[in-house]
């Protein structure tokens, strides 16, 4: 543990947010480092001093009247129904899941030298007398398959990648990119594609922030700011995190559609896999 890490860990400990292994590492460091022990005392002092500002004077008597007067000057804002937006959001989410569930299964790839399978049966078959057996469940994709969409796009040759991100020949080019990366069972919804595309646009700026040490990868697939950032960089980080959070939710919904589980329950696992995929890719 470095001095900087020990001091940051002590700051977490002040808030009761340091886990047991972290505490053990911190204690080991502090036992040997007088400089850090002194520093930590100053953090204690800072926390104590700030806590003394908690006292708040009573609400001024005339404040409520003043506020009412100010608000009365603002025109009334009529709106959509209180529940209309959540309902729309839920309906959209349900639609995404339905689209994913109903996505056509991938056709088997022909062996080298073999003619591709026809897309339409050559002759009409009579309807079955008995109900057709339930189709075998689609193989459940691993998290890594799902997260490899990004990997495939990023590792595709530049001309191909540019075509994909310009939206030209999206499906073909993407299929080629995924095939090059040896991936199967990857379906891309428009929503996921749009999010990936906007992330791609800000990639260089995010990389620059990371190189400058201003942000770092957290363990939940999101970026953490290492210090206060200028407003523009804060917005950039928030946009990136918002894109990542959207991807995580969409991936979880897609996976839930495949497995019949709950997207909400899958999200923590998806976050971890997302973080691991980013770290593995060095991004």
């Amino acid at each position: 543990m470095t001095h900087e890490e020990a001091r940051a860990a002590y700051s977490r400990q002040l808030d009761g947010a340091l886990d047991k292994p972290g505490q053990e590492l911190l204690n080991t460091h502090l036992a040997e480092c007088g400089e850090c022990r002194e520093y930590c005392k100053t953090l204690d002092w800072s926390a104590g001093a700030l806590g003394r500002l908690r006292a708040v004077p009573p609400v001024p008597e005339e404040l409520l009247a003043k506020v009412k007067e100010s608000v009365s000057a603002v025109p009334a804002a009529r709106s959509r129904s209180f529940w209309s937006i959540p309902v729309l959001v839920l309906a959209s989410a349900a639609f995404v899941v339905l689209v994913i569930r109903n996505a056509p299964p991938e056709r088997p790839q022909p062996a080298p030298g073999q003619a591709p399978a026809p897309s339409v049966a050559p002759e009409q078959k009579p309807p079955p007398l008995k109900p057709a057996p339930a189709p075998a469940p689609a193989p459940v994709p691993s998290y890594n398959d799902i997260f490899s969409i990004e990997h495939a796009l990023r590792t595709a040759p530049p001309p191909e990648r540019q075509l994909v991100f310009r939206g030209a020949g999206k499906e073909d080019q993407l299929a080629a990119a995924l095939s090059n990366a040896g991936l199967k069972d990857i379906a891309l919804t428009d929503e996921i594609f749009a999010t990936l595309k906007s992330r791609h646009k800000r990639l260089a700026k995010i990389e620059a922030l990371k190189t400058a040490g201003k942000v770092s990868e957290g363990d939940e697939g999101l970026l953490n700011a290492s210090a206060a950032l200028p407003e523009e960089e804060t917005r950039l980080m928030q946009a990136e995190n918002s894109g990542r959070a959207a991807l995580i939710s969409l991936y979880a919904a897609r996976l839930a559609g495949k497995t019949g589980g709950s997207a909400e329950e899958l999200i923590p696992g998806v976050k971890k896999e997302f973080a691991a995929a980013l770290q593995k890719a060095g991004r």
């Binding site: 940051a8 700051s11 977490r12 808030d15 947010a17 770092s216 957290g218 363990d219 939940e220 999101l222 970026l223 953490n224 700011a225 290492s226 210090a227 206060a228 980080m237 928030q238 995190n241």
Partner: peptide, 10 residues
């Protein structure tokens, strides 16, 4: 912001 950012900012 994520929890990690809160810890770093603090």
């Amino acid at each position: 912001v994520p929890v990690g950012t809160v810890a770093a900012w603090l």
